[in-house]
Design a protein around this nucleic acid. Structure first.
Lengths: 229, 229
DNA sequence: ACAAAAGTGTTCCTAATACACCCATGA
DNA sequence: TCATGGGTGTATTAGGAACACTTTTGT
């Protein structure tokens, strides 16, 4: 079925997937960027990306960016962000970029001169519209944090409440009240205490785990189901 | 600057913009669809769309859809929705669709055998993944309604509170309590009463208008500024 | 006078915020 | 014993939800 192609006309545009890769490192929210030199110009940084192949899905292309461009093989979170297609966004040629944003564990990555982390609040000089993309991705990440369980994708299986709170603080870019934070998390009914403790130089902290059986929990204002796109 | 193109490779994919056009008609939320016959197959309906031209922005392409495909020259609202790029979404050829959603005034459109409105809750047989797109657009529209001023784009300059409530009810697909609705709208401080009334067969209804000077109003939870993308 | 839509308040409950001290541990 | 991060409770406020009757008009 659907064999007629007579209506089609080629678009003559290049299609990329660029990924805004976030990671929490040194108690700060960072973005992974690639250095890109243009002849006779200052150094610019860019979001890692690839041209979309004819036989790959967009999400596959974004995973290829993570694998091939920055050597990440485990992704904590990945979501399509927005499609940037202004005619003049790349002065050389018409490129439409489907931007994704990802969350990864910085421990799993080797950085280099050419690929490194940058604090979201102190971005270097970025080429094209990539700074705009990062700012929008950060905004989206903040929103996600408030009504999805993305924070639990970022943390390991077992975590302390202080670690969880740090994730929130670093992404939202502000301090939170410890008591109110715990009250809110508990009221959501999404974490379970374990009998394990994280030992350190001071009082040990109880380790918690994210509940697996969330089908049952009905938290108003808390959107569990990933939106069907 | 940026003159080197040696990294580029063509994507060999077709790029479309398809638009999910909503309108409120007969006290119901409807989508404008085009009928599309495929040889020897049942009739399918599709979202109106065009292939993106090399020299036009994505938003320009979406406006071209409205102008050329369905003859709409006034759009109440237009926003990018999501980009659909599964390899197998069109069996003939690789097509990536940047979906937009729009809100228009049905009065301003001439329908025909080939282009007609369909209730969002009783969609006809749709080709490709277009039903999925419509459902996601509807979800997004519902969300927009709650934290933006989109409802006021839909209504004329002067409107009654009942008309405003109807917009909410039709989009959200549920009845709202009149007193709570009014309380909420008033508490937002975004509409102003006028001294005009809408006459009808019963008690006249006061006409309201959307406040123009919204820079000043700070409504918590109410997002005025369009997000910077 | 009556049918129909316009208009109006109170109570209850939940969630968000502000705020300060004791506890358990390793050094 | 002390420095440090772990852990806890209460009071206030704001917003959301449930709920029913009176008012105004045209016919």
């Amino acid at each position: 079925m659907f064999t007629s192609t007579n209506e089609l006309e080629p678009s003559e545009v290049y299609v990329r997937v660029d990924v805004c890769i976030f990671g929490i490192k040194d108690e700060d929210l960072k973005v992974l960027l690639r250095e890109r030199g243009f002849p006779n110009y200052k150094k610019f940084w860019v979001l890692p990306g690839v041209f979309v192949r004819k036989e790959e899905n967009l999400e596959e292309a974004s995973i290829r960016v993570l694998n091939e461009k920055v050597g990440i093989f485990e992704t904590l979170y990945l979501e399509q962000l927005y499609t940037y297609g202004e005619v003049e966004r790349d002065p050389r040629i018409r490129i439409i970029t489907i931007a994704y944003f990802a969350m990864v564990d910085p421990e799993k990555i080797e950085v280099s001169e050419k690929v490194d982390w940058h604090p979201v609040y102190e971005l270097p000089l970025l080429a094209f519209d990539h700074e705009k993309i990062i700012r929008y991705a950060h905004q989206r990440l903040k929103n996600k944090l408030e009504y999805t369980a993305i924070a639990f994708d970022i943390l390991p299986e077992l975590f302390t409440l202080t670690e969880l709170q740090k994730v929130y603080e670093v992404i939202l870019g502000k301090k939170l009240d410890k008591r109110n934070f715990r009250k809110k998390i508990f009221s959501m009914g999404i974490i379970e205490p374990t009998e394990k403790y994280k030992l350190g130089v001071h009082r040990p902290a109880r380790l918690y785990t994210f509940k697996k059986d969330l089908k049952s929990s009905k938290i108003p204002g808390f959107r569990w189901t990933r939106l069907e796109l």
